[in-house]
Amino acid sequence: MSLITILNAGLATGTILLFAAIGEIFAERAGVLNLGVEGMMLLGAMAGFSTSLATGNVWLGLLAAIAAGGLLSLAHGVVTIHLQADQVVSGLSLTFLGTGLALVFGEGLTGKNPPLVPKFDIPLLGDIPFIGPVFFEGHSLLVYVGYFFAPLAWFYIFRTRPGMHLRAVGEKPEAADTMGINVYRLRYFYVFVGGCLAGLAGATISLSVSPGWYSAQTTSGQGWIAIGLVIFAQWNPLQAALGGYLFGALRRGILDLQGPPMLFGFRNPLFINSNYGFFLQMVPYLLTIVALMIGSRAAARKRLGAPAALGVPYIRGERGL
């Protein structure tokens, strides 16, 4: 167990949360809360895994994962945007639906070995001491994509015209509508984008970080952690990426803590009695709660935070739909 291995593996695990959280940021910035991330991720993980297995082509697998997450999210879109159902309940049912679909179609996938997302070193950059082995050695392509993706998402949301429209739709849809922006279309689009990214996050698990299909254990609540991360990150992709990597490193470090008999010069209690590992496994979930508390307080203090129209269906005029 060395710091470099933990950080290196943490970046890989964190990439899962990065994609899922940024996807959710897009949807929430447009004013639609989608609690179905866990379900979309699981469906994406299953779709990617099985497609890669069936076709022998991992790229088709990634594409299938993205499509599966996106398609599932459209169900949430129809129900919340057009039928104006409660976004909380709809998101929950999306999680049930996605999990159920993934388990039904994923029957018999356990133990199979499809082609995985390739891993490689970045030449030159990989030679930098410490930074090289952490950031640029032995990662899968998806991790490198994540490095670019977070800043790009930030730039898109805060520095471009379409990004401004996105924020307008989530902050004050009436005003956006007056400006000639199609609120419904944009909301559908960003819910779809969020779904696609959740699907990709799922495939990041099943085809790269911890390859395999372990039914519902595949995601084990990471979709929910991603939603918590969005609040912690105050709807900012860069902070979400940072939080994702932090959580990733933590999850990974917890696994590694159980190995050595000595820890910082003391006898490692986990080595003597592995049952204390149950408490360590609680840490990511408890930390999500702590992160939420910090996020909620900071948001309250800076008067910064949730898009004003988050969770509120937009009804144009009196005509309803």
Binding site: G39, A75, V78, V79, L83, Q84, A85, D86, V89, S90, L92, S93, L94, T95, F96, L97, G98, T99, G100, L101, A102, L103, V104, G106, E107, S215, G320, L321
Partner: peptide
């Protein structure tokens, strides 16, 4: 079998219930 069938059914039920609320409002 397959084992996820019951869970999927639950998801579909919940989705349809909240969708059908539209008939109550409109």
């Amino acid at each position: 079998q397959p084992s996820g069938l019951a869970q999927m059914l639950q998801g579909i039920v919940l989705f349809l219930v909240i969708s059908s609320d539209v008939f109550l409002r409109y």
